[in-house]
Design a protein around this nucleic acid. Structure first.
Lengths: 213, 213
DNA sequence: AGACATACAGAACGAATGTTCTGTAGCTAA
DNA sequence: TTAGCTACAGAACATTCGTTCTGTATGTCT
């Protein structure tokens, strides 16, 4: 698929795991081990010159975490693909990693064969991860969707006013934009609060923004 | 893995494809074809009684779309897993499907073997999709991330207060929770506003929530 | 037509919020 | 040590918001 070998760097604090990974890369024909680092700080200092195709990043590093390191690396090397390695399936860390720019998420107990496959897959435009992790990622989208019954009761005018509220306008600014009096705005806002079951502008905005996701 | 066969329903308007899928299910030992429908409306009428384990849903249906059908089915049968079938890799449709509650996303030209595997995988807690689609889903998380320079200037106390503001608490409630005076809360809030370059609680909340994704 | 419901508009009053001050404690650099 | 900086705490005053009223169209049943 690729003629030149894929250059891969390793960031992993545990010596044993680090050496195993290095060994694995070295004995695989199409891969090249471009750098090995025991800490995120060390990796950040050296990787920018090397610009590898792929980085295998331990998520649990002493000092700077793998997530932080990923974010900073991606800022410098946007084209470098990062695969997280982790011992545990922690949901929060998965999402933080993906937000930081990781392109895949592997468990440490993954078979060597599959690690190699994952490296090739990520280069081919994929996002390798275990099927349990894939489901978590997919479910995340569904959580965004919320019951929107309350919002449907709002009249056109109330919706108009709510969306202005949620842009941060003052009552008097809303009154000016809609050509109605300040008092009237207050009246509408109060009805919006009743229908949304909230008692302050803040809560209404939070509910409104949470709704759009 | 499962002793009883997995019950699978098909929603697909094209007769040829529909019959091919049915044939595929029938000749696979561990699968049972529980229902075949040519439209979303038809599926919605009949599936609630059947409650299959998995539904293969064509995304491109005449009348009600596969996405709509997925959303309504999921509302009635939250435990039923839905795999979307599609001819084209349209990003928007992928995300709409996932938001509507689909648990996997297959191309129509997928090999029969892989379709069977996908059905088994989704029952086992996975989220089968092509590697290109997986990457799109993962990338979606990265887009959420925004520049957060302003927030880093906040002190621990200020962050604490901002996050309480963004939960809708009143000043006096915040004062009580943090054991400081109402006046002090005001003072902190004002500093937060300065650092975030906003001038009201609403704007601060909007900025704070927009930041988290 | 009369009774009822709803969307919209406005006013008065108390409560919450925003601004601008002052003061204290801890930490750093000259 | 002293001067300067920052985080935190508080007070006085002005503005904005939230609640509870009343009133006016408009539409829909019966």
């Amino acid at each position: 698929m690729k003629k030149t070998p894929i250059s891969v760097a390793i960031v992993e604090d545990v010596q044993g795991t680090r050496e195993n990974l290095e060994e694995l890369l070295k004995r695989t024909p199409d891969l090249k081990c471009a750098g090995i680092y025991a800490s995120g700080e060390d990796a950040l200092r050296n990787l920018p010159k090397i610009a590898p195709d792929v980085v295998l990043m331990d998520i649990n590093l002493p000092g700077m975490t793998g997530v932080q390191c990923t974010a900073e690396l991606k800022a410098v090397l946007p084209k470098t693909l990062i695969l997280m390695l982790t011992a545990y399936e922690n949901s929060d860390l998965i999402f933080e990693s993906l937000r930081s720019g990781a392109s895949g998420y592997l468990m440490k107990n993954t078979e060597p064969d599959e690690i190699i496959q994952a490296i090739e897959q990520v280069c081919a435009g994929g996002a390798p991860m275990s099927m349990q992790i894939a489901r978590k990622v997919v479910n995340h989208f569904q959580l965004i969707k919320k019951p929107s019954a309350e919002f449907e009761q709002l009249t056109v005018r109330e919706n108009e006013i709510l969306s202005l509220l949620a842009k941060g306008f003052l009552y008097k600014e809303i009154a000016a934009q809609l050509q109605i009096s300040l008092h009237t705005v207050r009246g509408h806002v109060h009805l919006v609060y009743e229908k949304l079951h909230v008692q302050s502008r803040s809560e209404a905005i939070i509910k409104f923004l949470g709704q759009k996701g």
